[in-house]
Amino acid sequence: MVKSFLISLLKKLNFNPFGRKSHVKLGLYGPPNGGKSTLANRICMDWLGEEMSSVSHIAHETREIKIKEKVSIKNKKGKELTFSLVDTPGISTKIDYEDFLKKGMKKVEAKKRAKEATKGVIDSIKWLDDMDFVVVILDATKDPYSQVNITIIGNLQARNIPVLIAANKVDLKKSSMDVIKAAFPQYNVVGISAKYGKNIEEFYDELFRLTK
């Protein structure tokens, strides 16, 4: 608590004893299966020409922090933004290996996945303090009022970490940008389809605004 207070105080005072960072850490946070890794892959494919993480329809595919160093993106004015992209495991309050069994996994594999997933959630939370900026990726087809979403955003706010909300899966009929915007009116929300690249230019513009 003391550590997070000091970090937020230094951020408030805009004080960095080690001088200006050459690049910053941009974290992708959110609940499982929101599309964090799909977005990480989209960013890396667009700017580095290679993917970063594996994706799956089964929750908790990303179970450890993944970092891609020195991702540089450019806007239309030619301005460049360089950051380390941090893809984090989805944060949830429950993990039941039986859910993985229902998806066709074997018991040993399901139990292993569940154990790794719990560690992944802990790591995601621990890494919050290290982020300079965060994109919270929410599934726009789902109820945004889950306590996990509120807890993630509340913790970022408490640490004075700038947040952009990416409402993902807007290509799906069930998606609703209005519901996400209504749930988090104090934040910029950009609707995207990480899978198909819809509105991705708008997302990059918002990243420049976020890190200004």
Partner: peptide, 28 residues
């Protein structure tokens, strides 16, 4: 709870997950 305490609750819950205890549902 404070935001940090909510995060701590999730963290400790994850540490305690076992075949008998599968986690929590939380709402405020």
């Amino acid at each position: 709870l404070r935001s940090q305490e909510e995060a701590d609750l999730i963290e400790i819950t994850m540490e305690e997950i076992s075949p008998k205890f599968k986690g929590i549902e939380l709402s405020v």
